[in-house]
């Protein structure tokens, strides 16, 4: 769509800007202020310059948490994206069955994050949980409080359970937008199932998939409540992810300065990834429009 240049549109944006700025810019400024000081209270504080940044960037525990975070995010993306696409292809297209499946698939997304943790805590306990109990019955010594591997697999499984639906629903809506005529043409050409997917469905999905990968990456990157409830970050620190390290530092130990410095580093990582994805989305859209418009 051709947009009209009009700087008075700023007036329409202004109320939104004021509210978001109140929620975002003021706290962000405060975080920056914290990060260069050693704060005891508003009157007792010392300027420390870049000390906290040096400390945080070289802290092995945080580096480990960062590495774990990336490993986790990439693992769940590698599982959820193909699985989500597959489920979207399987979902019925119309009728009451489509509505029912849609509601059931959406269900995990609507559960408060700490309840997701509780559900899986109950489900995986060796004594009262169906999954934990069944695994022990068949002879596997399943225990998420002592085995890091079990804890990892369980958290990944929980995240797959919780969020694959988002990818599936995004792709489902992408598939719904493909006109029936495309499929008819493919049938006339006797195209194989794979060819239909590769040349008709996948191109339609790229747009929504980029959005999906962006959302999933970001949400997994700030995962907090679910592992906190399920494993508490343990055993040891095997499932302590970035958000949790930060929350422990900020609220339990009240290390305001270091946690602020860490927050800023965290935020810069998010900002970079977000920008890369955003540019990718915008270029995709431009390419599509560029095909239709010649000016």
């Amino acid at each position: 769509m051709n947009k009209v240049p009009n700087n008075r549109a700023w007036w329409l944006v202004l109320p939104m800007l004021a509210l978001v700025a109140f929620s975002a810019i003021v706290p962000l400024m405060t975080v920056v202020n914290y990060s260069v000081q050693d704060v005891f209270d508003a009157n007792t504080r010392f300027f420390t310059g870049t000390e906290w940044f040096v400390k945080m960037l070289n802290d092995p525990a945080l580096q480990a948490a960062l590495a774990r975070q990336f490993a986790f995010s990439l693992t769940i993306l590698a599982i959820q994206v193909p699985l989500g696409v597959g489920i979207a292809l399987l979902m019925p297209k119309r009728g009451w069955r489509a509505s029912l499946v849609l509601i059931l698939v959406t269900l995990p997304l609507l559960i408060p994050w700490n309840v997701v943790g509780s559900i899986w805590q109950i489900f995986t306990r060796g004594d009262i949980g169906l999954m934990g109990w069944s695994l022990r019955q068949i002879g596997y010594p399943y225990n998420i409080t002592s085995s890091p591997l079990d804890a990892w697999v369980t958290i990944v499984l929980m995240d797959v359970w919780h969020w694959t639906s988002l990818i599936a629903l995004l792709c489902y809506s992408g598939l719904q937008a493909i006109p029936e005529a495309y499929y008819q043409a493919a049938r006339i050409d006797r195209a194989s199932r794979w060819a239909v997917f590769r040349y008709i469905q996948l191109p339609k999905l790229t747009n929504v998939l980029v959005i999906g990968v962006l959302l999933r990456f970001m949400h997994s990157f700030m995962i907090y409540a679910e592992p906190f409830v399920l494993t508490g970050g343990g055993p040891g620190s095997a499932t302590t992810f970035l958000s949790q390290s930060l929350a422990i530092m900020a609220t339990a130990q009240f290390d305001v300065g270091p946690s602020a410095a860490f927050s800023l580093i965290y935020f810069l990582i998010i900002l970079l990834v977000c920008w890369v994805f955003y540019t990718a989305i915008m270029n995709l859209q431009k390419d599509r429009q560029g095909g239709a418009r010649h000016d």
Binding site: V26, M29, N33, Q37, F47
Partner: peptide, 11 residues
């Protein structure tokens, strides 16, 4: 504004 703990460099 006191709680925002401003310093000259950050300002």
């Amino acid at each position: 504004m006191d709680w925002m703990v401003w310093t000259l460099p950050t300002a």
